[in-house]
Structure formats: C-alpha cells, structure tokens
C-alpha cells in the first residue's frame, strides 16, 4: 500500500496524477490505458476541490493504492469534506440534443464506465471512494 496526501486544490492535481501514474506503471498497465487512470482521478479529484471544503478551508485529499496482482489496481481517494457520495448522482441523459444538454454532469458517468468496481462509504468524517481498475475491464470498455 502506498499513500499520498495533498491539499484539495487545483495545483495538487499534477502530483496526484504523477502518483497514480507510478501506480499504473507498478501494475503493468499498458501506456494507452494509463490515460484512463488519469481520467478517473481527475474526475473524482475535481469534485473534491469544488465541493468538499468550504471556500478558504485548505482541506486534504488522501490517495492510496495497492497492486493485488499484475494488471489490477485498487485505489482509495478520501477527503474530510462534507458528506458527498458521487455515486448517488443521476446518470446523464445522453440522448438529448445539444441545446438541451446540461453543460456538465459527465464526470462520474465516465468514472463508472472505466472502473471495474467502485463504492463509497462515509467513515468517521471521511468520504472514502474505493475503486478497482484492471487491464481487463479497461480493454473491454475501450
């Protein structure tokens, strides 16, 4: 298990991405699939920076990963912000015409597409999102 703790701000996205890139390399994910790990991290991280902490409060984001076997990553992204379960968001309606489409709302949909499994729990003041990313699930989704 490896861990990184960063401040919940835009500037932390780059070191967080580098951290999970090293995870993807450790798991032996082929390079084209590593972009999907970047994507999942960004979508979850951006939600935390935007919604978890009140303005001006420098909260933190803890990221952990392990490699149970080659080709499989288990990742947890946790924050101490207000209760927020991203998995409760409604799925976007992808059949709407451009004029009727909301501008956002695709991030968690994308996360669900590219994770093998994902769950959320509220744990003693922490939001904890755990997910698995595998070469097999990414290849079948792409």
């Amino acid at each position: 298990m490896r861990e990184l703790s960063v401040t919940a701000e835009w500037n932390s996205l780059e070191p967080a991405t580098q951290f999970l890139r090293s995870a993807a390399v450790a798991a032996g994910l082929p390079e084209p699939l590593q972009n999907y790990v970047d994507l999942i991290l960004e979508e979850l991280f951006v939600n935390i920076t935007r919604y978890a902490y009140p303005d001006g409060q420098a909260g933190k984001v803890d990221i952990q990963y392990s490699v149970p076997r080659p080709g499989l990553l288990e990742i947890e992204i946790a924050d101490q912000g207000k209760y927020y379960n991203p998995l409760e968001l409604e799925s976007p309606n992808l059949d709407l015409a451009l004029d009727d489409r909301p501008v956002g709302g695709l991030g968690i949909f994308l996360v669900k597409q590219y994770t093998e499994s994902i769950d959320y729990r509220r744990d003693d003041g922490w939001n904890r999102v755990n997910f698995r990313v595998s070469a097999e699930s990414l290849l079948s989704a792409t």
Partner: peptide, 21 residues
Amino acid sequence: LEYVSSMGLRYFVNVGKRLND
C-alpha cells in the same frame, strides 16, 4: 489532442451551444 476529461467536454458543449444559438 491526446487527452480530454469531462471538464474539456463541458467546454465543447458550451461553445457548441453558443454557436447553435
């Protein structure tokens, strides 16, 4: 372009809507 996230898609949608208008 090698990478886009939902934030990027958001701006495509926004610009597309403005042009459609």
